[in-house]
Amino acid sequence: MQQKADHNQARERYMELVKRLTPKSKLGQGCLRAFWVGGGICMLGQAIADAGHRWLGLASADASAFASITLIFLTALLTGIGVFDKIARYAGAGTVVPITGFANAMVSPAMEFKPEGWVLGTGARLFTIAGPVLVYGISASVIVGILYYFIRW
């Protein structure tokens, strides 16, 4: 018993040492970068949607989908030529939170696992990071739908 308590105490002391000697990421700098890059990506999305509305005559919902698809395409291209991860290293959540983060999470494993084959490599691994997003997003929406059917708020 005593031995175990000593052991836990030693672990706690070590955790404190690690905490003291591990350099911290800079919160202020990270947030600032995330803010302007993330905000910038959203403005680009708005510009694409407006362009779709003006020149392609798209309705508001379609223009929004058009913007998403275009941003996903741009992310795929930038990921393919090896630029996206550099931007992401700078921007952090600024590229993760917009649809670009979802797209990069699909594109990068698709490329990475190509040597394991088109089916079990690219095909299967495409969803390794972004799969959970679909699982939880779709499941939540189905639950919302069922609840709405019975309750109708």
Binding site: W36, G38, V96, A105
Partner: peptide, 24 residues
């Protein structure tokens, strides 16, 4: 958009949440 990203960045840096968990 910027504000939503800042919340994400603060969550990544201040908690143990990985970007994949942020997406979810």
């Amino acid at each position: 958009g910027g504000l939503l990203c800042v919340i994400g960045e603060a969550l990544i840096l201040k908690t143990k949440l990985t970007p994949a968990r942020i997406l979810v």
